[in-house]
Amino acid sequence: MTQFVVRRLLGAVPLVLGIATIIFFLVNLAPGDPTLLLLSPGVTDEVIQQMRENFGLDQPVHIRYVKWVGAMLTGDFGYSFSHSRPVVDVLLDFLPNTLILSASALVVAFLFGIVLGTIQAVRQYSALDSSLSVVLLFFYSMPSFWLALMLILTMSLYARNVWGLPIYFPASGMTSTEYEFLSAAGRIADRVRHLVLPTLSLALVLMAGIARYMRGSMLEVVRQDFVRTAHAKGLPERTVVFKHALRNALLPIITLVGLYIPFLFSGTVFIETIFAWPGMGRLIVEAIFQRDYPVVMAGAFFFATMVVVANLVADLLYAVVDPRIRYE
């Protein structure tokens, strides 16, 4: 097992470095240049040259590449042009915001996805199964930005202004502007209120997919001999489903968890933009538009590393949940 982990980790190093190289050249060879965005009438060529020097853009690409890789290996990702701060500090500001949102979305999505998928499998071909399928397919087919706008329309604008409901949700931001003045409980409530709409926009789409997987996986398991045996020896339905079938049906879902880990960190541009959520997705996209190379490269590098790590974690989790799998 240890050997397997070490081997996989060593294999990951050239992979991550290769990704970093590709990212570096893609970003740096794209047309446009951060100093062009700062250009205004009366700013002379010497000034622009000075700015390029300040940004370290006056050197040829290959020299910049060597310097960047060298600095990166020591954990130095450089200085953000547009934020005027070290890149690592900027990433550390935005990362927790993204984690809050995507973690709650994943928790909601997996929780409800597993429950709904299980219900559907247990009641296969019932009216409940079919109607849930229709609803889930609806959410699955909806782009999340459209869902987000509809949620804002109904649960924020209409709920408050048209229907006059006592509960409605803010359409943007992570906290209200009075956040600093709230009590501890008030702050938690305030954050939860702000989380509801963006979480739902992300979770509903994910949940639909997870529920479909879960239903399929569960159906496969309930047909197996050990489940039939459990039924035959007279165990109550509840025990059969939860103790025998569900635990085995969850195995493929773990792969999904692994696949979604990078999403935890990357955030989603559309949802973050619509709900004015200052997360990683928006950070990186803004940085691309600003040609803020250090932020783009560090962000992309970070995501790439997360994908590699997540895959490794998923592989290891298999061995944990399924004793038949052994890595030698």
Binding site: S82, L92, L99, I100, A103, V107, P278, Q290
Partner: peptide, 24 residues
């Protein structure tokens, strides 16, 4: 428009490893 950044203080003054808990 160019963008600029600063610490979201409400998020970062806590001991930083806490968010690694991952749960909201």
């Amino acid at each position: 428009a160019r963008k600029d950044g600063m610490v979201d203080e409400s998020m970062l003054h806590g001991p930083s490893p806490k968010w690694r808990g991952g749960l909201p």
